[in-house]
Structure formats: structure tokens, C-alpha cells
Design a binder for these strands. Structure first.
Lengths: 202, 202
DNA sequence: TAATTTTAACGACACTGTGTTGATAATACA
DNA sequence: TGTATTATCAACACAGTGTCGTTAAAATTA
């Protein structure tokens, strides 16, 4: 049951999504109107409403599409899901996060706009939730028992998810000065060892 | 040179700011209009424009006021600013963060609305910047030399600032289940020791 | 207290952007 | 080729904005 999509529909939606990214980048999400979007996409304004309810709906569907694609592209290896030793090593990058940075690097122009634009609905929150899932299963693997945690579990999950997301944004804002692998290594180091080098006098 | 403020002006602005918080809490920032705000404040719509340029301007000035008040209320002790030993102890809460949580607790209804409302302009970013300053000076005190850091300095600052902010939001969303002192202690523990209890087999 | 200044209230206005509709033209597909 | 489907276009009512001129109320000053 292959449902064929009218190529005109596909074309129109792509034009609208591309126009949205461009205009957010140029003027910011709040400033732009449906009129602006359709004008940039060289489409009639009424056509917009044949596909999306409003500006927010267009943004939401665009965001979902990209985030779903990200999740689908990150498949943790079976070994990594069970091998605790890999996670314990503070110098060994976590493969999931290497893939995360790599995938973002491929679509970096898109991610940069959607993540660095302040107060853009949905996208940052959506990515944070995805990262929370990764963090949550990572912590569970290392410490299935709450007593092995230094702080309440849900606090720890949100602590690191927000921190990781912020580092991703930092990386994009600075035009990706390091490789995905290096970034994943850094995240692992700061998480396992904290901000300071081990103090021999401690 | 004491500049006297007309009490009518003070009253009007307070009414508008209170109405804004209420309506954000009830309907969300995006949904509400200047009309709604003045109606809730029992003021004429034209009066609004005598004091603020638009809805965003009202939000911005309200946010600035609260954040300035927060900064002013947090005065680090001289000892804390120089005594590295206090910071090194992972079980001793940092006094700055105790005060931060305490101040937020006092105005918790306001902070809860402004911090948990998604995509509210200015406020979260403003608080994050304030926390970044605290984190930055804390890290500088512990590690004035970059070689003593596990990751690049600006990356570490943003990592922890975002993480701390997220924990504050988590605390408010869960209706402050722990005391400010406990929260500050938790932040210190997870920062210095990481998420997992020290492993004797490591 | 009385006079003067400042601010709020009110009604009206043009303007922008929205969401929809009905008719027509263009495109896709069987 | 014929039949859907989709896009275009002009027009419409509507909601919200920002401003203006006038009038009323309140605060400050003499």
C-alpha cells in the first residue's frame, strides 16, 4: 500500500519549510508572518492554509520531521547497551553522542538556526527530550539502583540533559570548532570526572 | 535629588505587571493580547501605551526588575570569594546557591510562572547569564589555569550554568520538594563527584 | 484651600495580518 | 484523453494594534 504523494504537494511543502528556515535566520521567528513565508516561497497565501493551520503548525511539523530523522539515525549497538565498562571509562566517548554530533553536523545549517534562535517553540524542548532518553538509559545502565546515585535520579537526568544540549548549542554557535568524536569525549570527561583535573592532594 | 513618582503611575504599572503574570499562568504568553492585559488590570488600552511599547516591552521590563533584585540580594561573603577549601568540599553547599534558591523560594509563584512557561522571551536567558557569572567566578577560583580544567573553560561554564538552571526549573515544577540548602548541596555533589557514587573497584 | 500640572479614560481612526470562500487555471494520473 | 487534485487569485469579515484628541480625575504646588 504505497501511498503516492502528489509531487506538487511535496514541492509546495518543501518550499514553505525552506522559506521558514531562511526567514527565521534573517529576521527571527517572531517577526515573520505567513505572508512573508508564502512570498519567499513564491506561493499564494491561500495555498499555505491548504497545508498548515498557521505559522506555528508549520514550525511544529518541520521540527518533528527533523527530530524523528535524528532519532531514527541513532541506533545504539547491542554491546553498548549492556557493556558497562564502556560507559565507565571517562576517556572513551559514548557512541550515541558521537552519532548525535555527527548527525547534527550533517544538517548543521538547519540545526544552527533552529537551536540558536531564542524562544523558538518546540525544537529545543524536543531535542532535550531525546537527549533525556539517552541520558536516562545511560544512567540506568551504570546505576540501576538509586543508592548508587549521588542525587535523585530525575534531577540527575535533567541536569545532564540540559547540560549536554547547551554544549551542542555552544558547539553550533562557535561553528563547530571540534570534531563530533572530540565533543563526545569532552562530554564524557566532564560528566565522569567533573570540571577539575584530579587533585593529587585531595 | 529624590525623583518622586506619581502614585498613579506606580499603581498602573503594578496592575499591568500583575495582570501579565496571571494571564501567562492561565493562558500562556503567546495567547494573550494587550487587550487582555488591560482588561484584567481594569485599565484602558490606551493607558498601556503610555507606559510600555508593546507586550514584549512589558515582559522585558518586568523580567529585568526581578532579575536585578535577585542579583542585588546575593552578596557573596569575602571569605567565600577567596577560600578555595570551601569550594573543594563536595558536601559543603555553596553559599551563593543557597541564597539563589532562597530568593527564588520567596517569589516562587512569580519564578514558577516565568521559568516554566515555555519560550518566554528574556527571563530564562537572563537568569542563565546570572548563573553563568556565578559559575564562571567559581571555576576561576578553583582553576585559574586552563590546564587544571578537564574541558575548555567556556564549554564548562555553559555546561554547568545550563545544568544548574535546569535544576532550578525542576525544583519549581515539583513545587520545591527540598530546602534551598539541600538543593545547593545536591548541586555541589553532582558537580564535584559526578552522577555516580565513588566506585571502590575503580 | 485653590490653581496648575500630570495622568487616566474614552471613543474613533487607519492599518496590518489572519483565516476563509468561490471561481478559475494548471498539473498529475489513470 | 478525461478526470481528479491542487494552486492561483480576488475579495471578505474579523481581530488586534498603535495613535490621536478630548474629557475627567488625581496629584502636586503655591
Amino acid at each position: 500500500m504505497s501511498k503516492k504523494i502528489d509531487p506538487r504537494v511535496k514541492r509546495t511543502r518543501q518550499l514553505l519549510r525552506d522559506a521558514l528556515v531562511e526567514l527565521i535566520n534573517e529576521y527571527g521567528y517572531e517577526k515573520i508572518t505567513v505572508q512573508d513565508i508564502t512570498q519567499r516561497a513564491t506561493l499564494n497565501r491561500a495555498t499555505f492554509y491548504l497545508h498548515y493551520r498557521d505559522k506555528l503548525d508549520l514550525l511544529y511539523q518541520s521540527s518533528e520531521e527533523i527530530l524523528q530523522e535524528l532519532v531514527a539515525s541513532i541506533r545504539p549497538t547491542a554491546e553498548e547497551q549492556t557493556n558497562v565498562a564502556l560507559l565507565q571509562n571517562g576517556e572513551q566517548p559514548h557512541e550515541t553522542f558521537v552519532q548525535l554530533f555527527e548527525k547534527i553536523a550533517v544538517n548543521s545549517t538547519f540545526y544552527k538556526v533552529y537551536l540558536t534562535e531564542k524562544n523558538l517553540p518546540y525544537f529545543s524542548e524536543g531535542l532535550k527530550k531525546i537527549i533525556m532518553d539517552f541520558v536516562s538509559s545511560g544512567i540506568y545502565l551504570m546505576a540501576p539502583d538509586d543508592q548508587k546515585l549521588t542525587v535523585p535520579r530525575d534531577m540527575a537526568i535533567r541536569f545532564y540533559a540540559a547540560a549536554f544540549l547547551e554544549v551542542v548549542v555552544w558547539w553550533l554557535e562557535n561553528d563547530m570548532p571540534y570534531t563530533p568524536k572530540f565533543m563526545a569525549t569532552q562530554l564524557m570527561r566532564i560528566t565522569m570526572n567533573g570540571p577539575y583535573m584530579a587533585n593529587p592532594f585531595l
